[in-house]
Design a protein around this nucleic acid. Sequence first.
DNA 1: CTGTCATATGACAAGGGTGTCATATTAATC
DNA 2: GATTAATATGACACCCTTGTCATATGACAG
Lengths: 109, 109
Amino acid sequence: MPSRTVSIKPYALFFQALANQTRMQLLHLLSEKGGMSVSEICSELGLEQTHVSHNLKCLTFCGLVTPSREGKSRIYSINEQTVLPLLKVVDNHLRNYASNLFTCDVLER
Amino acid sequence: MPSRTVSIKPYALFFQALANQTRMQLLHLLSEKGGMSVSEICSELGLEQTHVSHNLKCLTFCGLVTPSREGKSRIYSINEQTVLPLLKVVDNHLRNYASNLFTCDVLER
DNA sequence: CTGTCATATGACAAGGGTGTCATATTAATC
DNA sequence: GATTAATATGACACCCTTGTCATATGACAG
């Protein structure tokens, strides 16, 4: 029996939000360019509006981005407190321990 | 056009490795108890051997754990350089920005 | 080199996530 | 309040991941 039982599901759910190319694109874009509206994001990445909205909702639900009204549009900004250190750790990891991930399409198992 | 085009896929793949309850269990267990053999992990978590092996391979592929021979068994240890800071960031995030993840089964979108 | 323990691999059915289509909501303007 | 711009929501088919079963590989002992 484990000494302390941590609730695992929230962690998996959190990472699931990041385990998707579209959502990673969104985070990278917003961390570079700051707050953007949905339509700006769409034209910048060449993606459909509904596609972007769905994925922004997922990121919002996980507290990774936050929307704010501005006229008719909504400006989405990243949670810098989390996203910046997170990407920094992962950058470092990919470079040092997982360079193979750059040349594969699927995870081995 | 984005000023610098980052390769997004590796990031998504990396997080995909973490987006799974079993694999999160493995990482938490190994980060608490240090190196363990497959059978030790199995009995500790009450999981099937093949199930554990499959998921360890996935984590190994991503550089999150490393195996080393010890007689007939293999001892798996986590990559502390990555896993510990990563879990720290996520712990903090879940507490401050995503407490709702503790009471849900699926991601909203 | 045979038997056995420990772990890895392959294949497959079931379930869940993904993007897209159609449509609803919300806000501003006239 | 009708219209239009901006975004959100719902539903659904496809695909990929998941866990499990059966089996293979590897290492040590005798």
